[in-house]
Design a protein around this nucleic acid. Structure first.
Length: 107
DNA sequence: CTATTGACGGGGT
DNA sequence: CACCCCGCCAATA
């Protein structure tokens, strides 16, 4: 992918406030690349751990953690909880409550 | 050139 | 919930 894409996505990623989570699709859009959700996932997947970026604040649509069953998924649940985020019984994040950016437009 | 492959997203049954 | 199907788009085979 173009370096510009990666830079824009990482910038949007760093801008997710602690205690909030965004989604692959939303992050792509925020970065200026709508419809590139899959590419955001691919990028996060190959981020060197030493960069210490908040990759764990990104989940799939519906607040689902990616690749259920994987070690990354378990680790992500832990990091999210340490971030002050409560997961529901099925291990999902309530995006209406923690989603970034906020979208609490009722009626 | 076509086919396949994804840390994806929606919609339908 | 389980599947199934389609759209998406860059990289790879």
């Amino acid at each position: 992918m173009a370096p510009e894409f990666e830079h824009a996505v990482l910038r949007a990623l760093r801008d997710i406030p602690p205690g909030r989570v965004s989604t692959y699709g939303t992050l792509a859009a925020l970065a200026g690349y709508p419809r590139h959700a899959r590419h955001v996932g691919a990028l996060l997947g190959r981020l060197p751990a030493e960069l210490a970026l908040p990759w764990f604040r990104v989940v799939g649509s519906g607040g689902r953690i990616a690749r259920p069953g994987s070690e990354d998924a378990d680790y992500q649940r832990l990091l999210l909880q340490q971030d002050g985020i409560e997961l529901d019984g099925k291990g999902r994040v309530d995006l209406f409550r923690y989603g970034w950016p906020p979208q609490h437009f009722l009626r």
